[in-house]
């Protein structure tokens, strides 16, 4: 690490605490014969260890932005820097973990083998792998299900296993695309608790895409609000509730209600716009 720091040019050192820099990002899709502009000139920074929620109605391009940061989609314009290094589409950036909206657990692997997949790829010896899997299984509350196949698990358990599969390789940056979108309200709040405890301990930099304002307020330090298509940044809000947060109790505070109302108004405008578009 120290060797790296000394070799970093001064121009980059200025942005040392900015892990993710998104500059003038745009994306257009060709659908049939029409061009659809999904993202228009999006620029923002994320600090090291910051939890940022990308909030917006569906079709606001927030997932597209996340997928471009994840190197899954090639941008039409602009660039993305992670730790000062340019993201190249199709090339996974080391240290970046991704949690999908739909859990993409491999159905042919047991829960334990799914969680240990990333370690297996990097050739971690079986003995060490086993110990770390056991740790993650315990953290996710999946004890007793290690040798079950994903098809036997409930939605919440599957998403916890998927989260652990991403976290076991200890990514410094965590990209999450509506990871709890398919879960019922109670399971969702359980997952918020799990995620908050992990984040408080590991302090990863998190980019969390959601259309659920309550979820964004519960989790994030900052909310970036996207407008309806074409996706642009409409506004940014700082969420200054104390940490550590309790996923249930935080929603009971007057400050939460105040912030909710304030952002809801702005978000609501976009819902209406998205409907008419």
């Amino acid at each position: 690490m120290s060797a790296l720091e000394t070799s970093v040019p001064t121009s980059l050192r200025a942005s040392a605490d900015r892990r993710v820099e998104v500059k003038g990002l745009s994306k257009s899709f060709q659908l049939a014969r029409t061009t659809i502009e999904a993202v228009r000139d999006v620029t923002f920074d994320v600090r090291r260890g910051e939890f940022v929620a990308l909030l917006g109605p569906s079709g606001s391009g927030k997932s597209t932005v996340l997928n471009m940061i994840a190197s899954l989609i090639r941008p039409t314009g602009g660039e993305i820097l992670i730790d000062g290094k340019r993201v190249v589409a199709g090339k996974a950036t080391p240290d970046v973990g991704y949690v999908f909206q739909r859990d993409t657990l491999f159905p042919w692997r047991t829960v334990a083998d799914n969680i240990g997949y990333g370690l297996e790829l990097s050739g971690v010896p079986a003995q060490e792998r086993k110990a770390r899997i056991a740790e993650c299984v315990a953290q996710a509350g999946l004890k007793g299900f290690e040798s079950a196949y994903p098809s036997a698990l409930s939605g919440g358990m599957r998403q916890r296993a998927a989260l652990m599969r991403t976290l076991i390789v200890e990514p410094q940056i965590l990209l999450m695309d509506e990871p709890f979108g398919a879960l019922d309200t109670h399971t969702k709040i359980d997952m918020h608790e799990v995620l908050l405890r992990i984040w408080e301990r590991e302090q990863q930099t998190v980019l969390f895409v959601t259309h659920d304002l309550g979820e964004a307020l519960t989790l994030a330090d900052r909310i970036i609000l996207f407008s309806a298509r074409p996706g642009r940044i409409k506004d940014m809000f700082t969420v200054d509730f104390d940490r550590p947060r309790d996923a249930v109790k935080v929603r009971e505070t007057p400050h939460y209600a105040e912030l909710f109302q304030h952002i809801w108004h702005s978000l609501g405008e976009e819902f209406v716009k998205g409907r008419s578009a």
Binding site: L72, A92, G97, Y98, L121, R165
Partner: peptide, 29 residues
């Protein structure tokens, strides 16, 4: 093959050969 599986593997650092071995072969089985 479900693109979600190959994307998940790639983002966890799998090489093309590892994707073939750990995703393509089992899901083709």
């Amino acid at each position: 093959i479900d693109e979600g599986f190959t994307n998940a593997a790639r983002l966890l650092g799998a090489s093309e050969w590892q994707i073939t071995r750990t995703v393509v072969v089992p899901s083709t089985m």
